[in-house]
């Protein structure tokens, strides 16, 4: 049977500075991207309908072609849709409308869209209307949630290892694991939704697994540093690759079916876990090596 083996990296060839430089540079670029977005748009990442308010409608349109269906949708509604997305190869389309900047109140907009869709002969599959006030409330709670989860994770990590450098190494790489996907969302134009927030929280829990494994192997187990690192790496890389594979499949299939929640959870976890591979085996390793060979000696 075919097998894959995790290759052994010869860490001795690189200095700690060299190892840490790449993830730190990526982190810096990510922070710049987010900062830039914040300066230009006023938000660190483009908030989606869940946070701005608006209406998402799923309608089945009977039209001879894709272009015709899109045209029909644009004509049917007096409000201009922000986006029209086709679900797989079906005749179902997802149209979103934002209330931001418009005079119409949320419940009125939804009611109007509903009757216009009926008038145009579309089969309404689902409607979701979010009030602007509710959206900003959700945004606030989501932010508190992410901060609380991160703080809780950091406190737990410090309690588990009870030494500063190895603990901060885990916390820094977890931070980077969240920041990099957020920067990628900006670059790829992915909106922040409840699904992406859930994925970011999930990342906080998921991504520290490999860091904990590495720290445990190096600090609490006997054996030479490089041997311990390789042992942890074999397990950790297998773990992360398994998760990446599962999440990538979920992201692709769910976006084909137009299930936004599952698609965004999958996408963000793929980004975050890929970032975690880099952060754990470059940043965390270099910090641990410094701690093991120089930090402890001092």
């Amino acid at each position: 049977m075919a097998r894959f083996e995790v290759p052994e990296v010869d860490y001795t060839r690189y200095t700690n500075r060299q190892l840490a430089a790449i993830p730190l540079a990526v982190l810096a670029v990510a922070i710049l991207v987010i900062g830039g977005a914040y300066v230009t748009t006023g938000t660190p990442v483009d908030p989606g309908l869940d946070f701005t308010g608006g209406t998402e409608m799923r309608v089945a349109v009977d039209a001879p072609s894709d272009a015709q269906a899109r045209e029909d949708i644009r004509e049917a509604f007096t409000a201009t849709p922000n986006s029209i997305q086709r679900v797989g190869n079906s005749d179902v389309y997802i149209a979103t409308f934002q209330t931001e900047g418009s005079e119409t109140e949320q419940s009125e907009l939804t009611r109007q869209l509903e009757s216009e869709a009926d008038a145009a002969g579309f089969d309404v599959r689902s409607i979701e209307g979010v009030g602007a006030a509710f959206g900003s409330e959700t945004q606030q709670r989501a932010l508190i949630g992410v901060v609380a989860a991160f703080a809780g994770m950091a406190a737990l990590v410090f309690a588990l290892f009870r030494t500063f450098v190895p603990s901060i190494a885990v916390v820094v790489s977890a931070f980077s694991d969240i920041v990099i996907p957020v920067a990628l969302m900006n670059l790829l134009g992915i909106e922040l939704t409840l699904g992406t927030v859930a994925a970011l929280l999930m990342l906080i829990g998921y991504s520290v697994d490999s860091d904990i494994l590495l720290n445990n192997s190096v600090l609490r187990r006997s054996g030479d540093f490089y041997e311990s690192t390789y042992r942890a790496m074999r397990t950790g890389v297998t773990m992360t690759l398994t998760s990446i594979a599962a999440m990538a499949v979920m992201a692709v299939v769910a976006s084909f079916f137009g299930i936004g929640l599952l698609a965004s959870i999958g996408t963000i976890l793929v980004f975050g876990l890929a970032a975690d591979l880099m952060n754990t085996y470059l940043l965390n390793v270099s910090l641990l090596r410094w701690y093991k060979f120089e930090g402890v000696a001092r």
Binding site: I144, G145, V146, A148, A149, F150, G152, M153, L156, V157, L201, M202, I204, G205, Y206, V208, D209, I212
Partner: peptide
Amino acid sequence: TTIVAMAP
């Protein structure tokens, strides 16, 4: 850690 992260 997963439980702590999901608790909020």
